[in-house]
Design a protein around this nucleic acid. Structure first.
Lengths: 150, 150
DNA sequence: TGTTGATCTAGACCCGACTCTAGGTTCTAG
DNA sequence: CTAGAACCTAGAGTCGGGTCTAGATCAACA
């Protein structure tokens, strides 16, 4: 049931380098144990934590914040409110990100649609022609401005 | 109608440094003109482009990719398909990001809910107590695994 | 037995995206 | 006329998040 660093790398998608780096940075909930020969041994739990960790990272939580969280966990009971607060802050951060991405997506879809129209109508040769202001400027503008205030 | 770099910085939210940096990196659609004294002058269009640029950046497009796009634009008509492809690639990238964030959000909401339950039931003192496996391990596990395949 | 491959440590290096510094010019208000 | 703000350039520094290297140890197999 012991896993080598290579195995964990393979299964977590992180590099062996990154795993050692994460350990140095104090990102493991439980200290990583060693075999008598000095090699690291991991367990399924570590993989589960790494999976969460990876989700937090990819949703924009910095390693510093993850460390903060894990530090609270290691301190044991008594700081649940702090943990909750930290999680909730990230939650709302993620919500904001989603909203912003959705907005970007709207702008881009619009742009792509307009492009497709032009190309389909065989007017590609007129796109971004400085003498055709309508198309020329479309390039650097958000045609159909997104609902800023709405 | 001419804008100074300071004005553009104020209105775009980018620093003066960043604006000069972006220019060096070739991220402006139109070359930035200068006054006879060497000072840069910008126009409303530049602000509009910077707004899009900022959206692309914050949705994860690298400066290198933005430069690629603007290079296509500068080359003029004839490469609309490449522009479309580039935009569509980013579009799907953003869609993926949204999905992943949503998934993270689900995991986090679950975690927060469980925490709240514990705290509310006055069992905070038992949270993360190694002799209570149920709560001890909850910390580093995704309780109620997210719908991986669903 | 000896070579291959996985692991170890410490520390150097890299990359993207800025950010800042130094040293100099120019504009503007008092 | 002068102080201070805003600008200029070239280039160095920073920060996050790894990635890679060198040199050593150790296990396993033909």
């Amino acid at each position: 049931m012991d896993l080598s660093i290579g195995e964990v790398a393979r299964r977590s998608g992180l590099s062996v380098h990154a795993l050692r780096f994460y350990e140095r940075e104090g990102l493991f909930a439980n200290p990583v144990r060693r075999l008598s020969n000095g090699r690291r041994i991991y367990h399924e739990e570590d993989l589960e934590w790494l999976a969460i960790c990876t989700k937090l990272r990819s949703s924009g939580m910095s390693l510093a914040t993850i460390r903060q969280y894990i530090d609270l966990v290691r301190q044991g009971p008594g700081n649940e409110h702090e943990r909750l607060e930290l999680l909730r802050r990230h939650e709302s951060h993620v919500e904001t990100q989603i909203r912003e991405l959705q907005e970007t997506l709207d702008v881009m879809r619009n742009k792509v649609r307009i492009y497709e129209d032009h190309v389909a109508r065989g007017e590609a040769d007129r796109l971004w022609n400085p003498s055709h202001p309508d198309t020329a400027q479309a390039e650097t503008r958000q045609e159909c401005h997104p609902p800023e205030g709405a």
